[in-house]
Design a protein around this nucleic acid. Structure first.
Lengths: 181, 181
DNA sequence: CGCGGCGTTGACGATGGTCAATTTTCGTGG
DNA sequence: CCACGAAAATTGACCATCGTCAACGCCGCG
């Protein structure tokens, strides 16, 4: 019914299997718009990960605007396309990357989206695990091994604040796709 | 530059990692339109899996038509949305399902898309594996175990022609997502 | 014929999952 | 403010699923 824009905080959207296994499709951070992806039926469940403020937009009014204004309609299309791109990249990660590669890719993604070297990850290890198709123990171990390798540091007393020491070396852990042939 | 519609045959579109690991994002069968997903740069490589005939559409002319005709533009949006839905479901499969569950889900998807009980899979075991995030050996073993369980039968020595004996029982191997809470 | 591609199957091993113990953090209420 | 309990995170030991490596069969094609 609505489309949302995160003002601040973080939101996860996910799917469940009947026995409770969860796959988080995306995290939505400050500025992100979500809820867009739906046709009519909602296909994802969205929950706040931390205290979050979001702006509400009536889907209906958006569709009206899109119907009349080609620019709005174009922006809508390009936002959905971005979602699709993200999903495509994430399929590659889920289908073909190892645990450390996934965690490295995740850190690079978050780093890229938040801007600063010092990141504060709003989500728990379990959330990260369900995003990456791993268990939280494996995520924890991967982070520890990256810390031991010296590419990142946990900042005082809060293992959610992470400092990237060497982005280049971190990127070496994540084999990005080459130019497609 | 172009958008394609498969007349008959089958196409795979995939991404690669630098060391050659491959993730197939989708198979395009007769009737399917693909190449749509792109912004400007192509993000997937597409190859025919078997002898294939496809229709070409100039992207430019499609965009022109979409800009002037709201119906075309709407159809375009809903096709991309379908792609996105598929990618979302596939993330759940890749992140959270076991080998047999993946293969069962794949068979159900193909069955659903081709219509008949008797399916002929145009792609090799390796293609299936790269679609499901597995190895071809694991795919082969999963198929064998489903055959031993009696839910399917190989119809030819080629093992590409498959007969589904019991769709219900096959579906039991694939834990679909419940109504999202 | 023999060779190469595809598929199946077995033996073995590694990556990541499971289970459990421990520590730190944090929220709540005395 | 401190104490307590719950939640989050780390770490270790063990194990299962799936990947790796290898052998083999079956066809099609030169």
């Amino acid at each position: 019914m609505y489309v949302y824009q995160v003002k601040h905080g973080a939101v996860r959207s996910y799917k469940l299997l009947s026995d409770g296994r969860r796959q988080i499709g995306a995290f939505h951070l400050a500025g992100d718009i979500f809820g867009l992806e739906n046709g009519d039926k909602h296909r994802f469940t969205a929950e706040a990960v931390v205290e979050t403020v979001a702006r509400l937009i009536k889907r209906e009014s958006l569709q009206l605007a899109a119907a009349r204004d080609a620019v709005v309609s174009h922006n809508l299309l390009s936002m959905i396309t971005r979602n699709l791109e993200h999903a495509e990249d994430h399929m590659l990660l889920l289908g073909r990357k190892t645990a450390v590669e996934r965690v490295a890719a995740f850190l690079l993604e978050m780093d890229c989206r938040t801007g600063a070297d010092k990141m504060s990850l709003p989500m728990t290890r379990l959330d990260i695990a369900d995003y990456l198709g791993l268990t939280f123990e494996t995520v924890s171990r991967a982070l520890s091994s990256l810390r031991k390798a010296g590419v990142l540091t946990f900042l005082d007393h809060d293992q959610r604040e992470i400092m990237l020491n060497d982005r280049r070396r971190l990127a070496d852990f994540d084999p990005q796709g080459p130019a497609q042939p």
